[in-house]
Design a protein around this nucleic acid. Structure first.
Lengths: 235, 235
DNA sequence: CCTCAACTCATTGTATACAATCTTGCGTGC
DNA sequence: GCACGCAAGATTGTATACAATGAGTTGAGG
């Protein structure tokens, strides 16, 4: 039996490598929303040509992790309040049912993979690496969707998780705990018991909790700098 | 008041132009699933360099209209039976609620746009241009999602509609009618009356009808050539 | 001292050239 | 005659070079 694949399968070509590396950096909050991603700069960092960089950026733009402005370049996306709300509405629509399906289909191996996730999340937390813990908790949701064995919906959820990472970076209420591993642990239990209804309900409340850890209220002025607001007001 | 925008906004750069042209050709069933899309060939047709063609193909690959195989090239996608079922499951999950939202938000102008769609569908049908009629009926669904004013879900629906076009090309039961304009007309009425519940139910049954016009039963052997099946068994 | 405009420079959009990989056809050996 | 292997052609993957657009700067004029 091959080792448990925690991360998605290794990318084969240079473009995917760069795209994954960038996506990971964004998910782990090592690059802030709004950051300019210059092509030459990235090309030098990853030691590939701009051709590869551009392909990777386009790929990330399609899942809305970065925003490409014609003749201006690529920036790490800054989801608006409205987009943030939409993303979590869509997650609330898709993920609970998916968790239920996962509970109905999960194999012992799947459970092991999920538990391995939890372990890694804890390890990252203990190491104080909040970015990595957050990233892993996103992958957890994707893994649940994978177990549900619905590729189409899983792909949608992947993009929603990706955008959620940006949303958390922008709108997380710092006084809130956002300690996801407890909710994830309960979810694993339900899935392991093939209790679809409970899994569905746990996922639903987990998403509600996540939402309340965010500050998605309307606000007259944003906290970001005026310059950023003027150069990228989400047209 | 500007003219009613039936099609999405005009693409600005060469890449988008090519991507839209290719997507339209696929939606109108002018290119069959499985067709090889050579880069040089397309470059000559659209009079742009392979750089542009590759970007367009990657864009289409992301919405799964084409499948790119490393070092082999791009092909018009051939959704498997399983994928076909998943796509319609996802549509059933997303579109009815979206139609309900659309009914709650539609403006008179929105209604006019939808009616214009119906008219164009009828015109295409009368002209015997089934491909164009089919493509327009897809755009109708996208337009409903736009009216619902949920960009995130609209984007998901767009990809589902795109793939549906391929699925219809592959699995349509020719004895079936697939005459969508009646269902669309009823839907417009419900939306115009702001009857969300009725719109939701009409969309649901419309999707059921669509599904029964397809033959998604398991089949031991496919109707396509052995070579195609062996070179692209959907790994 | 401030404003505006033109120019320079940096960055992106596109095209072309080179390298790597796959397909295909032919030739050799059995 | 058939199968295997090798080589030539074709196609994609990547890098580089050129063109076009935008941003920042510097200078003159008010």
């Amino acid at each position: 039996m091959p080792p448990l694949p925690i991360s998605p399968p290794k990318p084969k070509d240079a473009t995917e490598k760069v795209a994954h590396a960038l996506a990971l950096a964004i998910h782990e909050h090592r690059i802030a929303p709004g950051t300019k991603l210059g092509e030459d700069e990235l090309g030098e960092i990853y030691d590939v040509s701009r051709t590869v960089i551009r392909a990777a950026l386009q790929s990330l733009a399609h899942i809305q992790l970065v925003e490409i402005q014609r003749n201006k370049g690529a920036f790490v996306a800054q989801p608006s309040l409205r987009e943030a709300r939409e993303v979590f509405e869509a997650r609330a629509l898709l993920e609970p049912r998916t968790a239920g399906s996962a509970a109905a289909r999960a194999t012992p191996r799947d459970i092991a993979i999920l538990k391995e996730h939890i372990a890694q999340e804890h390890a990252a937390m203990d190491a104080g690496d909040h970015g990595r813990a957050l990233s892993l908790s996103g992958v957890f949701h994707i893994e649940v969707a994978r177990i549900a064995d619905q590729d189409t919906i899983r792909q949608f959820i992947e993009t929603l998780i990706a955008r959620s990472s940006l949303i958390i970076a922008l709108y997380w209420r710092r006084e809130s705990a956002l300690c996801e591993s407890h909710a994830h642990h309960a979810l694993i239990d339900a899935i392991a018991k093939a209790d679809a209804q409970n899994a569905e309900e746990l996922m639903r409340s987990h998403l509600v909790d996540l939402n309340s850890a965010l500050d998605l209220r309307d606000r007259p002025t944003q906290s970001r700098s005026l310059k950023e607001l003027l150069q990228d007001p989400h047209p």
